[in-house]
Design a protein around this nucleic acid. Structure first.
Length: 651
RNA sequence: GCCUACGUAGCUCAGUCGGUAGAGCACUUCCUUGGUAAGGAAGAGGUCACCGGUUCAAGUCCGGUCGUAGGCUCCA
């Protein structure tokens, strides 16, 4: 009998008979590994544990706790769910059921919808099927066999998928008990590997994501290799719910929506407006130091401008319809760029004027489809931390790098530890079509952006074929303290618009040149950014950003007079104070201030009044004892001035 | 925009079979004058999202509109 030699991750080698399965290898290495393994990787290729090994190679046995293993586990659980659904709803047709991050889903074509009761039943059935520990078999089929099989089962969606699989590709199906599903695999060797799962929710989803297609019913679920993994994930979902910006926005009275004002049009309440103003102050200060100048532009503009900019051509669906003014069509502005271009064009520019950096917290209105509105994250009116940098080709890289550094500066202030810049590049095959036909300029600019990202030591990935039609685009993804992902902002390099607007400058030789334009918005929009901050900080904002910074809590009426003089002293230091004169006991006042997430509490009674001191209490730190008013104000003003983050870990 | 679910006091939520609306918190007043996460009592607060229909009778059943949410698609 011939043998094969396998090299394990620790570089030890193992010689086994040809045809041994990876599962058998795992068993020989130890029952715990065999128990935990869900999939094998041979020479970098994932494959089923129960397939015979026929060649030498590097073998890894992956448990459900590895990223690859977890994905397989998720995918296999989707199959298990489909099996349960087919048993309970035989008329349901299966479609697709992939793994996504930490979750899986499966789409079914079924009359009606799945109720919560249905989900409970499906979950119970899944538990039974898992317990029966059906072996999961891979079957390779010819196209004809596969078509016949799925036609006979009346699985028309699978037939449609089969028809799209290119010739020459291996067609495989996976079978467990009575259930068989077209699938590339790999899968766990038996349903008993699936232990810690939960169905999460159901919703509609179009077949192939196309709204012209039939609406299918999607069920989402999750699975983990360990009980703790599942519990941890469910806890994280709970935590995310508690930090939901819509919930906290209400509780902390930051913003509201009103039916009569309109959907997607937030009203900033006084507390929220404080945050808006603090963010603007930060942006203004940062941009002034970085050589930006501020401009202001109107909310309304003639359609003509948007014809020139190309917005009416490319962007009309996202714009509010025109209004007729004296027979001329006017639009509310969806973007600030055309106005900034007009400001650039308002006077002749010399190379000496460049780079020209025009900044504005511009108000924009975009007609978002009703179904995509979402709290503050997707709205119809927004204020953007916008700026356009007009520069020469030579200046481009340095300007772009400076923008990147500004991002890092902000990330540090807000304690954003995880971020990713996604550099979207053009596809040379699409030049002249999807992309403006400037091959040299594309390559040159993309290279300059790449170099800037590298020099700035920024974390970035490249995505081919996703650029805007007029230049490369950099999307900035950030992750909040609880790991939720947000698209914070988009930077774009623009070589088309300056030409559309006839923007020029005179170079050293007196020749007319076209500048490059960088669109940038590091703080995104107030709406989305504050939405992000609410969830990131869980409502516990750094002192400089907190709507109410200090609560003054008199012990009893006897110290009201002193509390009032204290309030005046803090006002004089520009500290945002709230004085609690309600006839409650001190414990109740503290509780109220804690619930409102006021970072600093000053408890004052007769002792403090006599000594001109305060008793300092901070959130997450508790009672910090008696201190002089001078010391406390100095401490607070310093913390505010330097925009320090909260002392505690955010998580 | 599409599918589904939901909409009751400022907030969180009860409200059974269709019989004219309830709690807790917050609010107001009074008592209490207190020492680091809820002192006590009383009061006020509602066009049950809106419009229409069925019915002797609608928060409840039916239809429509508006709004919100979870998805699909798109995006700051």
């Amino acid at each position: 009998m011939s043998t094969i030699t396998l090299t394990l991750p620790d570089q030890s080698t193992l010689t086994v008979p040809r045809g041994t399965t990876a599962l058998e290898v795992a068993e020989s290495l130890g029952p715990r590994l065999a128990q935990a393994a869900v999939v094998a990787e041979l020479n970098g290729q994932l494959r089923d544990l129960n397939l015979p090994l026929t060649e030498d190679g590097q073998l890894r046995l992956l448990t459900g706790e590895t990223p690859e293993g977890h994905e397989v586990l998720l995918h296999s659980t989707a199959h298990l769910m489909a099996q349960a659904v087919k048993e309970l709803f035989p008329e349901a047709k299966v479609t697709i059921g992939p793994a996504i991050e930490n979750r899986f889903y499966y789409d079914f074509d079924i009359d009606g919808t799945f109720s919560e009761e249905d989900l409970r039943q499906i979950e119970t059935r899944m538990k039974e099927l898992a317990k029966r520990n059906y072996p999961v078999h891979r079957k390779e089929l010819s196209r004809a066999e596969a078509l016949e099989l799925f036609r006979s089962m009346n699985e028309s969606y699978k037939v449609e998928i089969l028809e799209d699989i290119p010739d020459g590709e291996t067609i495989s199906a996976y079978e467990q008990g009575d259930f068989i599903d077209l699938c590339r695999g790999p899968h766990v060797p038996a349903t008993g590997k699936i232990k810690y799962f939960k169905l999460l929710d159901s919703s509609g989803a179009y077949w192939r994501g196309d709204e012209r297609n039939k609406m299918l019913q999607r069920i989402y679920g999750t699975v983990f290799a360990t009980k703790d993994g599942l519990k941890g994930y469910l806890r994280q979902l709970e935590e995310a719910k508690k930090r939901d910006h819509r919930k906290l926005g209400k509780e902390l009275e930051l913003f509201t929506f009103d039916e009569e004002v309109g959907p997607g049009l937030p009203l900033w309440l006084p507390n929220g407006a404080v945050m808006v103003e603090e963010l603007e102050a930060l942006a203004k200060e940062t941009e002034r130091k970085a050589g930006y100048v501020r401009v202001r532009t109107p909310h309304l503009t003639k359609g003509q401008l948007y014809e020139r900019s190309g917005h009416l051509e490319h962007y009309r669906d996202s714009m509010y319809p025109a209004m007729d003014v004296d027979g001329i069509e006017y639009y509310v502005k969806p973007m600030n760029c055309p106005h900034h271009h007009k400001i650039y064009a308002s006077s002749p520019r010399s190379y000496r004027d460049l780079p020209l950096r025009l900044a504005e917290y511009g108000t924009c209105y975009r007609y978002e489809k009703s179904g995509q509105l979402f709290g503050l994250m997707r709205v119809r009116s927004m204020q953007m931390n916008d700026a356009h940098i007009y520069c020469t080709h030579e200046q481009f890289k340095e300007e772009f790098l400076a923008v990147c550094r500004m991002y890092l500066y902000y990330f540090d202030i807000f304690g954003i530890e995880k971020y990713e810049m996604r550099l979207s590049l053009h596809d040379p095959a699409d030049l002249g079509g999807k992309y403006i036909n400037e091959p040299e300029l594309w390559l040159q600019t993309e290279q300059a952006v790449r170099e800037a990202l590298q020099e700035g030591d920024l974390n970035y990935v490249e995505i081919p074929g996703e650029a805007a039609f007029y230049g490369p685009k950099i999307d900035v993804q950030v992750w909040s303290a609880i790991g939720r992902e947000f698209t914070l902002a988009t930077n774009q390099v623009d070589f088309a618009i300056p030409a559309r607007f006839d923007l020029t400058y005179t170079d050293e030789q007196g020749r007319e040149q076209t500048p490059l334009c960088i669109h940038r918005a590091p703080l995104g929009t107030h709406e989305r950014f504050i939405g992000f901050l609410i969830e990131h900080f869980g409502g516990d904002f750094p002192l400089w950003l907190a709507p109410v910074q200090v609560a003054i809590l008199p012990i009893s009426e006897k110290s009201h007079a002193y509390a009032k003089t204290l309030e005046q002293r803090l006002f004089a230091e520009n500290i945002r104070v709230q004085l609690d004169l309600r006839p409650d006991k001190i414990g109740a006042k503290i509780r109220q201030a804690e619930l409102k997430r006021i970072p600093v509490m000053l408890v004052v009674g007769e002792r403090e009044a006599e000594q001109q001191t305060v008793s300092l209490r901070r959130r997450f730190e508790g009672d910090l004892g008696t201190q002089s008013v001078e010391d406390v104000t100095a401490l607070l003003t310093d913390e505010i001035k330097h925009r320090r983050r909260p002392h505690r870990k955010i998580r």
